[in-house]
Design a protein around this nucleic acid. Structure first.
Length: 572
RNA sequence: GGCCCCUUCGUCUAGCCUGGUCCAGGACACAUCCCUUUCACGGAUGCGACGCGGGUUCGAAUCCCGCAGGGGUCACCA
């Protein structure tokens, strides 16, 4: 181990949006591999497409990674609550590609001087026409090298570049066979001539992906490149570049892709699709036009009409529709899952299992599939990455999340749930504050509530749904519900409710256990087999619905005054 | 279409390299039952897969070949 070179892995997202779950998995594996080998995990921002990149996205991605606990040893710095992530201990930065232009240009000139790259002058329209012609003739398109022949002399080429005549730089592909052993897929071979003279620097002076990656991976000493399989076909091009530079290439590993359950690509557009369908259905049902509902949604009518016509996939519009019609948009990005009340632990665990498996058994013979990032840092291995694409099964993630919540202590859950509520359910957080201004997340009543909710919640948001009775200003009881649980003629319903309330009034401490004991005792005194009839009447009285956590917790959380107020109102 | 990659329950997968212990194991989902004051939690049971066809072998999910199917990629995006 000591003799082998240090492992440096990297995650190199392009900052064009939030961190996608697929990206998160890539980052997690790169991180785990580096940790497993005592190396460094580096973060590089690939923002060479100025039109699509944004600093906000870069920041968002960094925050998402940090939230997941995937901390980079090298890369842009990000201040989190408890630490600063990133840094440049080996002085290989900057880590934003847009700030590395001089480096790329120097490398470009090096290739040009050696005749391994050359300027080309065709405009995009010309190229597009050539491509179209090739397609129609059922030929594979290859760049003609017309510009290469036009300026055969290297010195002339350099002169042209230095003069700043409009041009792109193309790589002079040697048309050799490229073969490599992919750490995941095994041997991959590409025939000579498959790689044509691809563009390595654009007209605007920015490098193209394949070129910048090679220059940076080499400059930053990356030893292992792990990325999604969609990059597999880029690898031969990059290898050709390594060869042209005389750089030793890193080893490559390409991971299988993640799809939706229906086999489609997981993309942000899924949100627009879902929203569009919901809107169309609603409009059809209400017999309305887009223009009728646009004002209520605070959306421009024209934009909304376009959205319906699928002429745009505006996220803002999709979110407005979701708010208006209370439909849930599918979670695609890490931030979506965070907001929906998932924990980083569950996400990491689930994502790791999508394509990787520790291959270990529990003592009872079952597969080991619950683990944390510390486990990954210790046991992750590239050779246990699968080769097959997988589908993102939300139901299983949900189950993992439920387990992650369940594995927390009541106090932990109370604390984290409160923190989540502060960002996502202010009304409930406010309630906790009202109960205990000094320590809302660990106040007695919040703790009671949290304990009651924990087994009933698969996500933090679920938990909020399960305690609707807490936020109620006044209880409304649907007639059918009242008929079933309160008006029951069999000397039950309201009569039992009143009796129970009377006994409760005698209680010195209004807490879950004694409240529970009283209902048990009353049931016994009544000769009931179980407290069901009483409990249901109480539930309906205080919550309006026959479903709540245990009666003891429910009433205790409400507090004596509020509980009695509601019971009295219902039994009148 | 060219090139490249992949193929075990509905889904994630173990097993495959080092053929027999696999009439294929686990998890999620689903179903039934138990527990139970409702809803959950929990427990038990069940349902359910080696893509197809050849070959090698005493024996193949495991090795070889072919086919079929799926995916990725073919940008002055990354």
């Amino acid at each position: 181990m000591a003799s082998s070179p240090p492992v440096i892995t990297r995650f190199a997202p392009s900052p064009t949006g939030h961190l996608h779950v697929g990206g998160a998995r890539t980052a997690l594996f790169c991180w785990a591999f580096a940790k497993r080998h005592g190396g460094h995990f580096l973060l590089r921002i690939e923002d060479t497409d100025a039109a699509r990149s944004s600093d906000e996205s870069a920041k968002g991605i960094m925050e998402d990674l940090a939230w997941l606990g995937i901390h980079w040893d090298e890369g842009p710095e990000l201040k989190t609550k408890d630490a600063v992530v990133g840094g440049d201990p080996r002085k290989v930065g900057p880590f934003f590609q847009a700030r590395r232009l001089e480096i790329y240009n120097a490398h470009i000139m090096r290739l040009v001087e050696q005749g391994k790259a050359y300027p080309a002058f065709e405009d995009e329209a010309t190229l597009a026409a050539e491509k179209k012609a090739a397609e129609q003739a059922k030929r594979n398109y290859r760049y003609s090298r017309a510009s290469l022949e036009k300026v055969p002399d290297i010195k002339d080429r350099i002169r042209i570049i230095e003069r700043g005549e409009p041009h792109v730089i193309r790589f002079f592909s040697p048309h050799e066979e490229v073969a490599f052993t992919d750490e995941v897929l095994g041997d991959v071979k590409i025939a000579p001539g498959e790689i044509d003279d691809f563009i390595i620097r654009r007209r605007d002076g920015f490098p193209m992906y394949n070129f910048a990656v090679v220059v940076d991976d080499h400059a930053m000493g990356i030893t292992h490149v792990m990325r999604a399989q969609e990059h597999l076909s880029n690898t031969p091009r990059q290898l050709a570049l390594y060869r042209a530079f005389g750089f030793a290439p890193p080893s490559f590993g390409h991971m299988p892709l993640i799809f939706n359950m229906d086999g489609t690509k997981m993309s942000k557009r899924d949100k627009a699709k879902t929203a569009r369908k919901a809107l169309k259905d609603a409009l059809a049902k209400e017999k309305k036009q887009a223009a009728d509902v646009a004002p209520a949604m605070k959306v421009d009518a024209k934009e909304l009409a376009d959205f319906i016509a699928a002429e745009n996939d505006s996220l803002a519009v999709a979110e407005a529709i979701a708010r208006h019609y209370k439909v849930a948009l599918p979670e695609i990005e890490v931030a979506d899952f965070r907001d929906a009340g998932y924990t980083p632990q569950a996400i990491n665990n689930f994502l790791a299992l999508l394509g990787w498996n520790p291959g270990m058994k529990l003592p009872d013979g079952k597969d080991l599939e619950k683990f944390d990032t510390a486990f990954l840092a210790q046991h992750f291995s590239i050779d246990r990455i699968g080769k097959t694409n997988s589908k993102f099964d939300r139901a299983k993630l949900l189950s993992f999340n439920a387990d992650a919540l369940g594995a927390m202590s009541d106090e932990q859950f109370a604390q984290q749930w409160f923190a989540w509520c502060e960002d996502n359910e202010p009304a409930l957080a406010a309630k906790a504050r009202q109960w205990d201004a000094a320590s809302p997340a660990s106040g007695q009543r919040w703790l009671w509530l949290a304990k009651a909710i924990k087994p009933r919640a698969k996500t933090f948001r679920d938990g909020v749904k399960a305690c609707g009775f807490v936020l109620l200003d006044s209880v409304t009881i649907a007639p059918e519900v009242a008929a079933k649980h309160l008006d029951a003629d069999s000397s039950q319903g309201r009569g039992l409710l009143r009796e129970y309330r009377q006994r409760l009034a005698l209680l010195p401490a209004f807490e879950p256990k004694p409240i529970h004991d009283v209902i048990e005792q009353l049931a016994k005194d009544k000769g009931f087999a179980n407290p069901g009839p009483i409990a249901q009447a109480v539930r309906v009285a205080v919550a309006g619905v026959p479903v709540t956590p245990g009666i003891g917790e429910t009433l205790a959380v409400l507090g004596r005054d509020e509980a009695f107020r509601r019971m009295d109102a219902a039994s009148a």
